[in-house]
Amino acid sequence: MTLTLLEIVALGLLGAAVLLSLLRLILGPTAPDRVVAADTLAVITTSGLVIIAALLGSPLYLDVALIYGTLAFVGVVAIARTIEGNG
């Protein structure tokens, strides 16, 4: 589908959000900061997958988003448990 100006703006804002979260993921400075950044990035990725589904017009990616979101949550809880255990 052809994109409207507003949709291009939205994609740009979302891209900037991904870049900033990646920056926090790289900068750290501590491991918990990276975990938080990764968690945020995972949620952005979930909605990003939904947007990819819309861009390609294929509902198949909605299932990918659903599974990705679920797995990301399980991953975050697992990491949190690890931090807790090391404390």
């Binding site: 501590t30 918990p32 975990v35 938080v36 968690d39 949620v43 979930t46 909605s47 939904v50 509902p59 909605l62 299932d63 988003a65 659903l66 979101g69 679920t70 990301a72 949550f73 975050v76 809880v77 990491i79 949190a80 448990r81 931090i83 807790e84 090391n86 404390g87």
Partner: peptide
Amino acid sequence: KLLVIGVLILITNPLGSSTIARALLKAGV
């Protein structure tokens, strides 16, 4: 399906954040 994804995000995101925050507090941050 979008509704299911929305509810999933609405439930898991705050839960995940609270879990991390609790782990940090227990780890002494």
